[in-house]
Design a binder for these strands. Sequence first.
DNA 1: TATAATTCCTCTAGCCACTAGAGCTTCAAG
DNA 2: CTTGAAGCTCTAGTGGCTAGAGGAATTATA
Lengths: 136, 136
Amino acid sequence: MFSIGQLSKRTGVKIPTIRYYEQMGLIDEPERSEGNQRRYTKDGLSRLSFIRHSRDLGFSVEDIRGLLDLSQHPEKPCSDAHSIAARHLQDVQSRIAKLRRLERELKRITKCDAGNVATCAVIETLADHGLCETEH
Amino acid sequence: MFSIGQLSKRTGVKIPTIRYYEQMGLIDEPERSEGNQRRYTKDGLSRLSFIRHSRDLGFSVEDIRGLLDLSQHPEKPCSDAHSIAARHLQDVQSRIAKLRRLERELKRITKCDAGNVATCAVIETLADHGLCETEH
DNA sequence: TATAATTCCTCTAGCCACTAGAGCTTCAAG
DNA sequence: CTTGAAGCTCTAGTGGCTAGAGGAATTATA
Ligand SMILES: [Zn+2]
Ligand SMILES: [Zn+2]
Ligand SMILES: [Zn+2]
Ligand SMILES: [Zn+2]
């Protein structure tokens, strides 16, 4: 049996976050000590590790809810898990693409030789998207 | 003089967002009609366009506050603007790097040949970061 | 065993940058 | 002068936490 603090140390999930996950229904309400403190089992630990790792990989809490549900049903086909992961991958890729467009523009505007604001490329570009090279 | 709706159409900023920016102090409180409706000038329009473009480039509201301040003082050196932009560029780049690490892992785990959850690479990997190839 | 230090509890509120909706008032066209 | 669109304020919700207040329980030390 682990206290919430021990669970936190073992998983790297902060204590208030564990309680938040409980509130969101990602983890079951654990047993309590006589004094009403949370006591976790190994199952609770591995479930939280699953959540932690999924969050680290950028899955939303909603996605994780679905993935956890699936993981409780080993006999089910895994196509649902794949579609969640594939959708997330697409999302990550489109975010990368967007950030790369930003990176390009930001690199460009920070090449400014002016000394003061009046003719600064940064300020001028912000005032006028027409000065940008790409859409973003 | 523009109504808030006209300003919204011209800048692409939604009406509630314009009011939000006013509340945040990014734009001055505009004059009002006799019936208390907001009336904007061309200055208001260009200030909002500046904000819109800066947001599109990913600057935070706090950064924009600083950039707007600078843009009102053309005689100032533009080094402050540059450091805001450079810091933001760094931030964008580190987000790209992080997303690329995620992309790599997600691509890997979605190559799963199993048919059901019991042996699915997606679910197994989420349960155990040790199965990942990289840190992320 | 008494006390002190640490950990835990619940509850509320704050973060960012909006977005939605309720219930009301004003404006502009015909 | 009526009507319908557009505006007003205010509150609350989004996601994923995080911080703090004020108190109770647990653990370690003397
Ligand atoms: Zn400059
Ligand atoms: Zn632009
Ligand atoms: Zn699979
Ligand atoms: Zn991993």
